[in-house]
Amino acid sequence: MYQIDTLTKTYQQGKRVVHALQDVSLRIDDGELVSIQGPTGGGKSTLLQMLGGLDRPTSGSISLDGTDLAGMNDTDLTRVRAETIGFVFQNFNLIPTLTAQENVETALVPSGVSKEERAARAVAALESVSLGDRADHLPGELSGGQQQRVAIARALVKNPKVLLADEPTGNLDEETRDEIVDLLEGLWKEQGLTLILVTHDSVVARRTPRRLRIAKGQVKDLTA
């Protein structure tokens, strides 16, 4: 469960101060499927990075299961990201020189599981996204949709509590978009994880039970 209180994040861009998030307070329960919409530069990605422990707020607190991420040191934040949070990115962000299976395995490297177990879990994760037969393919040999499936398998292989997806369908055509959203929705239901989607796409947002809108650094719950 996320509990966010008066969260503020400001950036310095040259001489200009950017207020990416302003006094955001929010609660996201375990197992929720939440979409975050908003205009470009409105603070969507910044909020997602705060939720994922990739960045620290300027002020306020953001706690995951009672632990304040803002007060954690780098080592502890890295551990939380390695064990608890899965990421899916708009550009897939796969390692181009590694095969689909090896890409998925990278998520298990920090947890120190054996090589055999790593391989077995990576293959199972790829099968869960219907890419078991593409395990030996390099990202460049896969379509955009397939690459995003590999990225989803990489995010889920460590059985995270939270899955954060930043514009996961932003680079995909409509048909593939629907496939990916179906897949994410299915995994959410199946695994009971907390799924938070940042999206521009209202079609995607409308499929989520809870919709947040963020603009000028302030969040509005559209389903409240």
Binding site: T78, G86, F87, A107, P110, K158
Partner: peptide, 16 residues
């Protein structure tokens, strides 16, 4: 940059 940032995001430590 993106590749290394991604690895850090998914839990690779700085030392790794």
């Amino acid at each position: 940059t993106r590749e290394l940032g991604t690895l850090k995001a998914i839990g690779w430590s700085r030392n790794r």
